[in-house]
C-alpha cells in the first residue's frame, strides 16, 4: 500500500510539470522521459518480472504506431479507434510471438534472438508493402484537435503519455501484489520448481508478454501521434528494442520505479553529452553502450537497487524487511 501511495504521489508531482515548466523544450524533455519510462516499464513486465529477455520489443511498438497511422491515413479511421486497435494488435503480435517461442520452451538467448528476428521481419515487411508507405514512410496529416488525438500544445501530449505511463506503472504495481506476479517471479527464478507447485508457466509467460506488448504498443501509438511521421526503421528498428531494455536495466529490472529512474538517467546523460560534446552523430549510442557495461559491472540491480541499498543502510539493522 505504501508503494502505491508513493507511486501516485510521484505521478501527481509529475503532473504539475506543464504548469510549472514554461519552456517547450523542457516540457518536451519531461514528455520524452515519460515515454521512455513507458517503453521501459513495458519491457520490465516481461524481462524484469518474467525473466524473458526480449530484444525485439520494437515489434509491439511498431505495430501500435503503424496501426494508428495506417488506419488514419489509408482508411480515414479516427485515431481514438486507432489507439484501441493499435493496443489490441500489439497484444495480438505479442501473443503470436509468445506462442511461437514459449510453446516450444525457448529461453534465454534463444528467446532473445527469436524476438529480434520477429521485429526484423516486421521491419522488412513494412518496408516492402504499400499501405505502410514502404521505405518512404507514412506522414500523418496535421489536424490539431482532441478528436483527432492531436494537440496544439505540448500539454495535451504530456497528459496523453502521462496517462499511458501511469497505467503501465499501476499494472506493474498490481503485478507486485498479485498471484499473477508471484507466479511470474517464480517462473523467472525457477521454472521447474514453479511448475511443481502448480504454476502454469506457459500461461503466465503468455500473460506477461501480452501485457508487455500492450504497453509497448501504446508507446507506439503515442509516438505516431506526437511526431506524426513513421518509417520502418523508426517503428520496427532495433533502436526502440534497445531503448526498451536499456531503461529498466539501468533503472533496475524487476522493480516498480526502476524504469522511471532509468528513463530519467538516460535522458539526463544524453542531454548532458549534447551540452558538453555537442551534436556528434552516434555519440549517444556509444555512451549508452558504455553506461550499460558500467551498470552491469557495478550496479547489476540498477539505480533502484542502489537506492534500496543506501536506504537499507540508514535503517536500523534489526528486523530486516523484505521487499513485498
Amino acid at each position: 500500500m505504501r508503494q502505491l501511495v508513493l507511486l501516485l504521489a510521484v505521478f501527481a508531482v509529475i503532473a504539475l510539470a506543464p504548469f510549472v515548466i514554461a519552456s517547450e523544450f523542457s516540457l518536451n524533455l519531461v514528455i520524452m522521459v515519460l515515454y521512455a519510462a513507458l517503453l521501459g516499464q513495458a519491457w520490465n513486465i516481461l524481462g524484469g518480472y518474467g525473466g524473458q529477455f526480449s530484444f525485439g520489443h520494437a515489434a509491439y511498438f511498431g505495430t501500435g504506431a503503424y496501426t494508428v497511422a495506417v488506419l488514419q491515413v489509408q482508411l480515414g479511421i479516427n485515431p481514438w479507434i486507432g489507439l484501441v486497435a493499435g493496443g489490441l494488435l500489439a497484444i495480438g503480435v505479442a501473443a503470436f510471438i509468445g506462442l511461437a517461442t514459449f510453446r516450444y520452451g525457448l529461453r534465454g538467448s534463444y528467446f532473445a534472438l527469436v524476438t529480434l528476428a520477429f521485429a526484423e521481419v516486421l521491419r522488412i515487411l513494412s518496408n516492402s508493402v504499400d499501405f505502410t508507405g514502404a521505405g518512404v514512410g507514412i506522414l500523418i496529416p496535421l489536424a490539431p484537435g482532441v478528436a483527432n488525438l492531436q494537440f496544439e500544445t505540448k500539454t495535451g501530449y504530456f497528459f496523453l503519455v502521462w496517462t499511458f505511463t501511469l497505467a503501465a506503472f499501476l499494472a506493474v504495481w498490481w503485478i507486485g501484489h498479485s498471484r499473477f506476479g508471484a507466479s511470474l517471479a517464480a517462473v523467472r527464478d525457477n521454472e521447474e520448481a514453479a511448475r511443481a507447485l502448480g504454476v502454469n508457466a506457459f500461461r503466465v509467460k503468455m500473460g506477461a508478454i501480452m501485457l508487455s506488448g500492450l504497453f509497448s504498443g501504446l508507446a507506439g501509438v503515442f509516438y505516431a501521434q506526437y511526431f506524426l511521421y513513421l518509417d520502418p526503421y523508426i517503428a520496427y528498428g532495433p533502436a526502440i528494442s534497445v531503448e526498451s531494455l536499456l531503461v529498466p536495466i539501468i533503472g533496475g529490472m524487476g522493480t516498480l520505479f526502476g524504469p522511471l529512474l532509468g528513463a530519467a538517467a538516460l535522458h539526463a546523460v544524453s542531454e548532458l553529452t549534447r551540452e558538453i560534446i555537442g551534436e556528434v552523430p552516434g555519440i549517444s549510442l556509444v555512451l549508452y553502450g558504455a553506461l550499460l557495461v558500467v551498470m552491469v559491472m557495478f550496479l547489476p540491480r540498477g539505480l533502484a537497487g542502489l537506492g534500496e541499498r543506501l536506504f537499507a543502510r540508514r535503517r536500523p539493522k534489526a528486523g530486516e524487511t523484505g521487499h513485498a
Binding site: A182, A185, A186, D189, N190, L197, G198
Partner: peptide, 18 residues
C-alpha cells in the same frame, strides 16, 4: 530449488497461491 532473491514467505506463498 528455492526462488533465490525472494524471501522465505514469498517462496512459500507461490505454493499457497495454487
Amino acid at each position: 530449488q528455492p526462488f533465490a532473491g525472494q524471501t522465505v514467505r514469498e517462496n512459500i506463498a507461490v505454493g499457497a497461491h495454487l
